[in-house]
Amino acid sequence: MNLTINIVLYFVAITIAFLGIMLLVAFTVLAERRVLAFLQGRVGPNRVGYGGVLQPFADFIKTMMKEDLNPAQTTKFIFFLAPMIAVITAIMSILIYPFGPPITIPFFGTVPLVIARFDVALLYVLGITSVGVYGIALAGWSSNNKYSLMGGLRSSAQMISYELSLGLSLVGVILMAGTLDIYSIVEQQSGWFGFHWNIFYQPLGFIIYLISAIAETNRVPFDLPEAETELVAGFHTEYSSIKFLLFFNAEYINMITVSMLATTLFLGGWQGPLVNQFPLLGVFYFFIKVLFFLFLYIWLRGTLPRFRFDQLMSFGWKFLMPVAILNIVLTATIVAYWPVLLAKLGLR
């Protein structure tokens, strides 16, 4: 009986999170178009609904109605599998993020605002991200198109390279927290009016994470896999209708989950003023921080030009990786010798 209730609760939680993420994706797309238009001195889509709020849904219906093309000589099964891998791996990582502190619902009990809490949450995210490469790589290969193949190859090379510095930039936080459980990492960042947030202890790690996360999600200025001027549209040139929509969704879901990880690890997750009195405020703070990162993505897209591919590679391997390793060494030394130093100074 208890097991059944738990399974039902999991389904409810997953459904809510899924719908929430999908709405967030829809409005991120709209926000991207409006903000980008503002940055470039245009107006942007403002006709469908008040100020264009229904534009994403109109786009959705329009894309769905298009013909689902299947070019000749494609590898059918993999052509079909690739968008699914992309979107499933993207959405699987929302399982672990704590959206807020535990909330007491009258007549029901206390509910933690996290879908699953387990020991290796952080490694789970890294694993899921590394499998996500296949969506793009296989899409590029199976399309039987030069531009797609180039896009797929570029993106797999890029994602492998930046995954390393992404993972290494998180090691500093893990060393300080002493756990891989994201929920306890958030709880450790409470107090001190926000000065316990990891961004103040790991500024280098935060910057490395931000750069490699942008590269990992294939966004400007690292959007070489889909560089329009060289590769038509890169790996999704041959995709249309719902398959294209799945890739599009996967990109935006990846942006959101990466922002959520940055929020939970570096900006204190749902921590903020008055959270202990009003737990629901935590959810608000969490999404404010996530939206800040999403705005940063759009802002960068409106500001920066694209890297060249060799610049991208040498930046990732010859600059970002050594700096990330240096950050690990520094953090480990400080974590190991801080208690010794305090004892020597007679402070403990």
């Binding site: 020991d119 790589a137 296989l138 590029g140 190859l153 797999s156 995954e163």
Partner: peptide, 24 residues
């Protein structure tokens, strides 16, 4: 769970990416 995560990261995420890369 740790072994599982490492299995996915190392084998599925790194080694097989290289294999797929070479085949492509």
């Amino acid at each position: 769970p740790f072994i599982a995560a490492v299995q996915v990261i190392v084998y599925a995420g790194a080694i097989m990416v290289l294999v797929v890369f070479v085949i492509m």
